[in-house]
Design a protein around this nucleic acid. Structure first.
Length: 158
DNA sequence: GCCAACGTTGGC
DNA sequence: GCCAACGTTGGC
């Protein structure tokens, strides 16, 4: 069991969009970065926990918890010339790009803002908080996961 | 909208 | 294989 943080711009796909999906499940397609691809293809496993992060948002935040429900399978949007993530160099017999499927577990409401996360000493080493961090699929340690879940649970008192 | 940080491309 | 130019990401 491992833990991850997946980034998405809410203007293109938000945690609320995931909640609204049939079975609250979607294929995490469109990843076009090799390091992120390698995590998706080689390490992300069914049952893993996912922090759903809203980048380019106001404020940027962790907006919900999800879980992996299907391991890596080819990202078919790479083969569709009409898709914005089309990659003419990727071929069906040897796909370059992969996706996993995730299912919403619960929203974090209100979400955990980036500023707030920066203020948490135990999260100081988190990849998300590193200056210049751009990776859209990031590993999260068990200790970091525990801290974030605890912060998320504290949201429920009101 | 700005711009720092990072990834990719391509000439050499 | 180097590295400058370029494109993208994402906080602010």
């Amino acid at each position: 069991m491992a833990y991850w943080l997946f980034k998405s711009e809410p203007s293109s796909y938000s945690f609320a969009d995931l909640m609204a999906e049939p079975n609250q499940t979607t294929g995490w397609d469109g990843v076009r970065n090799y390091q992120a691809r390698n995590f998706l293809r080689d390490q992300v496993a069914v049952g893993d926990g996912v922090l759903f992060y809203h980048s380019n948002a106001d404020p940027p935040c962790i907006a919900g918890i999800a879980e992996v429900v299907a391991q890596a399978h080819p990202d078919l949007t790479a083969f569709d010339p009409n898709d914005s993530h089309y990659d003419s160099k990727s071929i069906r017999s040897d796909p370059t790009w992969f996706q996993v499927s995730i299912k919403a577990v619960r929203p974090i409401d209100p979400p955990l803002g980036l500023q707030e996360l920066h203020a948490v000493a135990e999260l100081a080493g988190m990849e998300l908080l590193r200056k210049g961090s751009r990776l859209s699929i990031q590993p999260v340690s068990a200790a970091q996961w525990k801290v974030v879940i605890k912060l998320a649970k504290a949201r429920k008192k009101h």
